[in-house]
Nucleic acid binder design. Structure first.
Length: 570
DNA sequence: TGCACCAGCGCC
DNA sequence: AAACGGCGCTGATGCA
């Protein structure tokens, strides 16, 4: 390994010229970061930038020592159309972006490539593990957590830094071969093109009304105190409603047979004892209190914003997952959502798909009834309600539509009669008998025969893998469950579509004040200047509809975009 | 005391 | 023949 440790702009220029002149325009890129929190791009800084190129010395650039000109030369090079190869590019892109370097496509992320290949198997995606798997090479990692802020870096540190960049080019070669063999190049490409959007969302964060959270916490606490007293008055003692053990023991001592301490089970026993209602209320309130306390905790005082981390292949299906702070599980209740607000003078543009998973199911299965319904612009929940109850579409009541909604989603998940009862009650407060549930299911599949045929076919396959319409492959360790085989292609196609939107959105918004704020599976939140809201609304809506049309050829797609002064507004 | 697990529940 | 999809977070529980 031929390495150059570079601390000076003139030397950098010389080598950078070699890089710019190389025949194959591919560069391995890696960063070492430092500071009080070297893993947080808003708190840490860049210490080293390492570059590797075919047949060229590896450059280990001591970034803080470059002068403005050197930093600018580096920026020019990294923003050029050379293929940048990184492992976990999101991390490096965020540090670079904060330092004024906006990494552009083409980007090849070896972590995402490995994740696409192994989707569902959940292997370690750390660089050393991926290198071991695909190149059978042991990459030492001892220096990873060493102190990168000290004046003099040790030879071991420099060697470590160089090696991480050096390995990226052979690793990319190998991964491309594997992706090609598995017909996953397109999916890997989509993942890499989604990166800038993820970087934007993580760096932008979302503004929180912190005073509002304090008020909410106080009111929830007070309500909880009252309900706890009420419960105490009935049972003569304090219990912890979060302890399933205590709840079960208490109710049994009061002569109530309980299946579990779950709210959905307890609520069915409401008439059996007066303690049950306050227990349920306390459960709801403790959960609310949990959120009210949690939301302000992560808000960074310097910016008043809450930052999340997205995992781009967080789910086997290809969906994003979100953590620390998990925006994807904020209660839908406006008391919570109204705490998330745009800056002064800005608004949110919020857009989501209408019934996306059912539309995808229609497309994938080719079910004639579903297709015809969507082509006529019908609402499928209403149609299902009408078909299972035998009344006209115009006669469908709200309650009937709720039943049908549970039925539609339940059937996408591959549920049986028993589970549908639980699901309908837990999610839609629809109480079904076993007989009703079974009748609903029978009628459902008599109506949607094409969907049934597709599900049966999916369930019969023995290979333990599934594919989305975007050709994303989902592997299951061992034998796949029926429910996974019928659901993952649908959920995964939804992810393909959303990622397609994310891959084009940063460029579409580039000429506007629009900033990508959040993505919640079938919903995208953008913040922009009030004046530009109608433009951004149109951009977002059309980006979503165009992207979906790439996958859904026979089903029309609708994205509903609206302008809002908080996340709560519909 | 710390850790691993799980029950339960928020979202789509 | 039947089949309970995908996440992350909290607090309780049980064990070392």
């Amino acid at each position: 390994m031929n390495c150059k440790y570079i601390t000076n702009t003139e030397v950098l220029k010389t080598y950078l010229r070699q890089y710019q002149e190389q025949d194959v325009q591919v560069v391995g890129l890696d960063l070492e970061t430092m500071g009080e929190d070297p893993l947080n791009p808003r708190k840490g800084g860049i210490r080293l930038i390492q570059l590797s190129g075919q047949g060229l010395p590896i450059l280990i650039i001591d970034y803080p020592r470059l002068n403005v000109e050197g930093k600018n030369d580096l920026k020019q090079y990294l923003e050029s159309d050379v293929i940048k190869v990184l492992h976990n590019a999101k991390f490096d892109m965020e540090f670079l972006k904060i330092n004024g370097i906006d990494l552009k496509q083409p980007i090849f992320d070896t972590l995402l490539a490995a994740a696409v290949l192994k989707a569902g198997l959940n292997p370690s995606l750390k660089l050393d593990a991926v290198v071991k798997e695909y190149l059978n090479y042991d990459l030492p990692k001892e220096e990873q957590r060493s102190d990168w802020s000290q004046e003099q870096l040790t030879p071991d540190q420099l060697l470590y830094a160089a090696r991480d960049a050096w390995i990226l080019l052979p690793l990319r070669e190998k991964l491309i071969q594997e992706l090609y063999r598995a017909d996953l190049l397109e999916v890997a490409n989509l993942e890499c093109q989604t990166l800038p959007a993820i970087v934007e969302m993580e760096l932008n964060g979302i503004r929180v009304n912190v005073q509002g959270t304090a008020v909410l916490e106080k009111t929830v606490k007070e309500r909880l105190r009252i309900k706890e007293q009420e419960l105490n008055a009935i049972i003569g003692k304090d219990i912890n409603v979060n302890s399933s053990k205590q709840v079960k023991e208490l109710l049994e001592s009061l002569g109530v047979e309980v299946k579990s301490s779950k709210s959905e089970d307890l609520s069915k026993l409401n008439d059996q004892h007066p303690a049950i209602a306050p227990i349920l209320a306390c459960k709801v309130l403790t959960k609310q209190l949990q959120f009210a306390k949690k939301i302000p905790k992560g808000v960074e005082p310097e910016t008043g914003r809450l930052y999340s981390q997205y995992r781009q292949l967080g789910a086997i299906t290809g969906r994003l997952s979100c953590k620390e702070f998990n925006l994807q599980q904020v209660p839908h209740d406006s008391a919570f959502r109204e705490l998330f607000v745009p800056n002064e003078g800005d608004v949110f543009v919020i857009s989501d798909y209408s019934q996306m998973q059912i539309r995808i199911a229609a497309e994938i299965s080719g079910d004639q009834t579903m297709l015809a319904a969507y082509q006529q612009g019908l609402d499928l929940h209403t149609l299902t309600a009408s078909l299972v109850s035998g009344v006209d579409v115009n006669e469908v009541t709200k309650a009937m539509r709720s039943e049908a909604k549970a039925l539609n989603f339940g059937m996408l998940f591959g549920m049986g009669a028993e589970s549908l009862i639980t699901y309908a009650w837990g999610s839609y407060e629809v109480l079904l008998t076993l007989e009703q549930s079974q009748t609903f299911i029978d009628t459902f599949f008599k109506t949607y025969r094409g969907l049934k045929a597709w599900q049966t076919k999916q369930g019969r396959q023995q290979t333990s893998k599934a594919y989305t319409l975007g050709k994303r492959r989902q592997l299951f360790p061992g034998k796949a469950r029926y429910t996974q085989l019928v659901n993952t292609p649908i959920q995964g196609t939804e992810a393909d579509i959303l990622k397609t939107v994310l891959s084009i959105l940063p460029d579409l918004l580039a000429g506007t004040s629009g900033k990508l704020i959040a993505c919640i599976h079938d919903e995208i939140v953008v913040e922009c200047l009030k004046d530009e809201a109608p433009l951004v609304q149109e951009l977002l809506k059309s980006a979503m509809e165009i992207s979906a049309k790439k996958y859904l050829k026979t089903v029309p797609v609708v994205a509903d975009a609206h302008i809002a002064s908080s996340w709560a507004e519909k």
